[in-house]
Simulated assay, not measured.
Amino acid sequence: MGRFGITCWNTIRRVWKSPDKVMFLRFEELKSKPVEVLKDLAEFMGYGFSQEEEDGNVVIDILKLCSFESLSSMEVNKTGNSWHKIENKAFFRRGEVGDWKNFLTFDMVQRLDEITEEKLEKHGLKF
C-alpha cells in the first residue's frame, strides 16, 4: 500500500475519534431516509431547521437542489474538470445503492472489506 493509503487510513482513524468535529454519512442511509439525514447534518453543523423552515418545505427544497439528478445535470459537472484535470462527470455514476456491483468484482469487494476491517474495526469504526 502506497504512502497515500497509509495517510488515508490514519486520517480516517484520527477523525473518527473526533465525533464533535466530523460526521460520517453512509450513502445507504442518505438514500433511504434523506430528510432525517439532512436534519441531523444541519444540527451537527449548528444550523438546525426551525419549525417554520420545516413547515415551509425548506428541507425538501434543499434535498431537491442537492439531489443526484440536480447536481449531475449542472453544466459544470457535465463539462468541467476537477483540480487534477479529472472530468467532473467522472464523480457521478447512477446515484443508486449497490451500483458498485457494476464496477467491482466479488474478489475486489472481499479484499476491500478485509483491508477496511484490518485498518479500522480495531478502532471501533465498522461499516
Results as ranks from 00 to 15, higher is better:
residue 125 L to D: 03
residue 84 H to D: 15
residue 42 A to S: 09
residue 110 Q to L: 10
residue 120 L to C: 11
residue 43 E to K: 15
residue 80 G to V: 09
residue 77 N to A: 05
residue 36 E to C: 04
residue 30 L to E: 02
residue 1 M to T: 12
residue 37 V to I: 10
residue 62 I to E: 04
residue 37 V to F: 00
residue 121 E to F: 15
residue 113 D to V: 06
residue 117 E to R: 14
residue 122 K to A: 07
residue 46 G to C: 06
residue 100 W to A: 10
residue 123 H to K: 07
residue 11 T to G: 10
residue 106 F to W: 08
residue 13 R to C: 00
residue 68 F to G: 03
residue 118 E to F: 15
residue 52 E to M: 07
residue 13 R to L: 00
residue 116 T to A: 15
residue 106 F to H: 14
residue 41 L to H: 00
residue 69 E to V: 08
residue 61 D to S: 15
residue 98 G to P: 03
residue 122 K to F: 04
residue 7 T to N: 13
residue 124 G to K: 07
residue 79 T to S: 11
residue 31 K to E: 03
residue 23 M to P: 00
residue 65 L to R: 13
residue 120 L to N: 02
residue 53 E to K: 14
residue 2 G to E: 08
residue 122 K to C: 05
residue 114 E to G: 09
residue 83 W to K: 12
residue 98 G to A: 12
residue 116 T to P: 01
residue 41 L to D: 00
residue 64 K to D: 04
residue 6 I to G: 08
residue 5 G to Y: 09
residue 123 H to G: 12
residue 99 D to I: 06
residue 20 D to I: 00
residue 24 F to T: 01
residue 103 F to D: 14
residue 124 G to I: 04
residue 105 T to E: 01
residue 22 V to S: 01
residue 115 I to T: 14
residue 110 Q to C: 07
residue 114 E to F: 06
residue 89 K to F: 15
residue 65 L to V: 05
residue 58 V to R: 15
residue 21 K to N: 06
residue 99 D to W: 07
residue 92 F to A: 02
residue 17 K to P: 09
residue 107 D to Y: 08
residue 84 H to S: 11
residue 126 K to S: 09
residue 114 E to V: 02
residue 3 R to W: 11
residue 84 H to A: 08
residue 37 V to C: 02
residue 72 S to A: 05
residue 74 M to P: 02
residue 127 F to N: 03
residue 45 M to D: 09
residue 45 M to S: 12
residue 1 M to K: 11
residue 59 V to K: 00
residue 46 G to L: 06
residue 112 L to F: 11
residue 77 N to Q: 05
residue 101 K to N: 13
residue 29 E to S: 09
residue 27 F to N: 02
residue 87 E to C: 04
residue 120 L to Q: 02
residue 47 Y to H: 10
residue 104 L to P: 02
residue 113 D to H: 05
residue 84 H to R: 07
residue 64 K to W: 03
residue 66 C to W: 05
residue 116 T to M: 08
residue 58 V to N: 00
residue 36 E to G: 15
residue 16 W to F: 09
residue 72 S to P: 06
residue 4 F to K: 14
residue 54 E to A: 03
residue 82 S to W: 12
residue 72 S to N: 14
residue 113 D to I: 04
residue 107 D to T: 07
residue 53 E to P: 03
residue 18 S to P: 05
residue 67 S to N: 08
residue 22 V to A: 01
residue 4 F to L: 15
residue 38 L to W: 00
residue 32 S to E: 10
residue 21 K to R: 14
residue 74 M to I: 04
residue 76 V to D: 14
residue 90 A to I: 04
residue 75 E to W: 10
residue 125 L to W: 01
residue 14 R to I: 00
residue 51 Q to H: 11
residue 123 H to F: 09
residue 65 L to C: 13
residue 54 E to Y: 08
residue 73 S to T: 11
residue 6 I to S: 11
residue 26 R to A: 01
residue 121 E to S: 13
residue 20 D to R: 12
residue 2 G to S: 12
residue 64 K to T: 04
residue 100 W to D: 07
residue 58 V to Q: 05
residue 36 E to M: 04
residue 100 W to L: 04
residue 79 T to F: 13
residue 76 V to G: 04
residue 28 E to T: 07
residue 64 K to Y: 05
residue 33 K to E: 13
residue 33 K to F: 02
residue 121 E to C: 13
residue 44 F to W: 01
residue 89 K to H: 10
residue 27 F to I: 01
residue 41 L to P: 00
residue 9 W to I: 01
residue 63 L to F: 05
residue 15 V to Q: 00
